[in-house]
Amino acid sequence: MKKKIIWIVAVLLVFALALAAYWTFLGPKANEGEKKVTIRVIVEKEGINKSFEYDTDLDFLGQLINEKKEELAAEISDMGGSFVKGMAGYVADESKNEFFSIKINDVDAMVGIDEIPLTDEDTYTFELTTW
C-alpha cells in the first residue's frame, strides 16, 4: 500500500505541474486596462434586438455578464464553466433545440464566455439560434 501511495503522490505532483504549464502556455490571456465593449442580444422571434455598452476593466466576458446580470436579464448555468441559457429575459428552450450563439465582431466564438477576453471596441453578440 505504501508503494501505491508514493505512486499516487508522484502522479498528483505531475498533474499539478501539467496544470501549471497548461495555464501558463494555453490558458486564456486577458487584456489589461480600461475597455469599451458592446454586448448585443438578438432574439428575432421575440423582436428583441438590444445593445448594451460598457466601460470596464474586467478581463473576461463571463465576468462582465455576471456583474451586469440584472441589467442584461441574463441566466447563466454552471456546467464546468459558465453557460449562457438566457439573455434579455428570454431563456433558450432546450426542448426546441434553442441556444444562444456567441459572436465576437460577427465571427463565431470558439470558446465559452469565461475564456473570451474583453477587448477594447469589440462587440459580443448573443443570438438565439437552433441546432
Binding site: I8, V11, F15, L19, L26, V111, E115
Partner: peptide
C-alpha cells in the same frame, strides 16, 4: 486544447 485540463483529470483519476 480547451479540454486538456479535463483530460488530465481523467487520466490522473483513472490511474488512481
Amino acid at each position: 486544447t480547451k479540454g486538456l485540463v479535463f483530460d488530465l483529470v481523467h487520466g490522473v483519476s483513472n490511474f488512481i
